[in-house]
Computed example of a mutant assay.
Amino acid sequence: MLVDIVPVGNVPANVKRAASTALRSVYDCDVTINDAQSVPNGAYDADRNQYTAETFIQLAERVGRGEKNIAVTPHDLFYRRRNYVFGLAYLDGSGSVVSTYRLQTSSDGGFSNQSAEDIFQDRVRKEIVHEIGHTYGLEHCDNNRCVMNFSPTVREVDIKEENLCGSCQRLIS
């Protein structure tokens, strides 16, 4: 399986490395990093001062070279009526997106003694693994330690692990 990371906007090398490392580790897949792309036309919603997540997924599907493709962007995303999303993917689809915008907070509220940069890298890895999991057909998991657990806040992202629980792992094996 090939997963192509599609940077959209100015995505730092450390974010691309974290995404690539996590995908290889959890899914044992090949990973490529595509050329940087511009924000898709029509993605920006001036009323919300955010970007619509679906347009980034469509871009990833269009330019990505993998069986699975994930756009990664520093821009703030929303989906329908949600105030924001860390990422979005369609079940069993080929495209997905992760935004690093809201993953960059100064700390994890005392959950660990890691540096802000290490916390950020952990969050990026978890969200990349989570969204690609959806493209493999995985739904949200009730196990709050599983990477597929629904995590609407960074605190919940920090609590879960980077890996699939045994039940979710069996579903994709």
Rank of each mutant, 00 (worst) to 15 (best):
I132M: 02
I132W: 00
S115P: 08
D122M: 12
E127G: 05
E127I: 10
F111T: 14
S106V: 08
V124I: 07
S107Q: 01
D118Y: 05
Q104S: 14
Q121N: 13
I128C: 09
G110Y: 04
K126C: 02
K126F: 04
N113K: 09
E117Y: 13
L138A: 14
Q121E: 12
Y136Q: 09
S112D: 09
S107G: 06
Q121K: 13
V129Y: 00
K126L: 06
I132F: 01
I132G: 02
I119M: 11
G110P: 05
A116G: 08
S115R: 06
F111N: 15
L138E: 11
G109E: 07
R123H: 08
E131R: 12
S107I: 00
G109P: 03
E117M: 11
K126A: 04
E131Q: 15
L103F: 00
S115C: 08
F120V: 02
G137Y: 04
G109D: 08
S112H: 06
I132T: 06
T105L: 06
Q114M: 15
S112E: 03
S115F: 05
G133W: 08
T135C: 13
S115G: 10
V129F: 02
N113A: 13
H130I: 04
E139T: 13
I119F: 04
F120L: 03
H134Y: 11
G110C: 10
